[in-house]
């Protein structure tokens, strides 16, 4: 077994175990912790696919920023008290199970029937180049310039908006 496949199975195992822990642990903070570890494992899988930029951004954005927000909410509203949520709403529980089954079915269908859709022929040198920051930056500034500028404008507006809102509250 090559080094890459060893690393792949290692990170894949982390992702699978932690994602099971996310839904199985009773304590919501433990779930959040498992989700963070799951993102870290996924970042490792991206690394074995030579997608270094996506791997690091996965950690910065998901594990570093979004999960902090989740944790804040969990820690401050203490949802341990809400444990009886599904016991009170039986029909809602059925609905969630139904959605879960549908999504699982779709995933299974994709994995079993659609393997040829994901061509595994992409050679390492090519994907090595695609994953770098330089390449992604180049694509953003040439092929996707307009959407990129639009998103940049939107983000700037959002950050200024956040500042204005916060300022109003403090004064």
């Amino acid at each position: 077994m090559s080094l890459e496949s060893v690393l792949f199975y290692f990170f894949a195992a982390i992702s699978i175990v932690t994602s099971i822990l996310v839904i199985s642990s009773k304590n919501p903070v433990l779930s959040a912790l498992s989700l963070i570890l799951n993102f870290a494992g996924l970042a490792g899988v991206y690394l074995t696919l030579y997608a270094q930029f996506i791997a690091v951004v996965q950690v910065i954005v998901y594990a570093g920023a979004i999960m902090v927000l989740f944790l804040f909410v969990i820690m401050l509203i203490r949802p341990e008290a809400e444990r009886n949520y599904f016991q009170e709403r039986k029909s809602f529980k059925m609905l969630t199970i139904g959605i879960g089954v549908i999504v699982l079915g779709q995933l299974m269908f994709l994995i079993i029937s659609g393997t040829s859709m994901f061509t595994s022929g992409g050679h390492s040198e090519q994907s090595l180049e695609v994953g770098t920051v330089e390449r992604i930056g180049w694509e953003l500034m040439t092929s996707y310039l307009l959407p990129f500028e639009a998103i940049g404008f939107l983000l700037l507006a959002a950050s200024i908006g956040a500042m204005v809102l916060a300022k109003k509250k403090f004064e």
């Binding site: 912790l33 963070i36 270094q52 930029f53 690091v56 951004v57 950690v59 910065i60 594990a63 570093g64 920023a65 902090v68 944790l71 820690m75 770098t132 920051v133």
Partner: peptide, 19 residues
């Protein structure tokens, strides 16, 4: 080749130790 992003990623994870 993306060392600075690596540092940023680790610092953002560092918040969790305290939280």
């Amino acid at each position: 080749n993306m060392g600075i992003l690596y540092i940023l990623a680790l610092t953002s994870v560092g918040v969790y130790a305290i939280t």
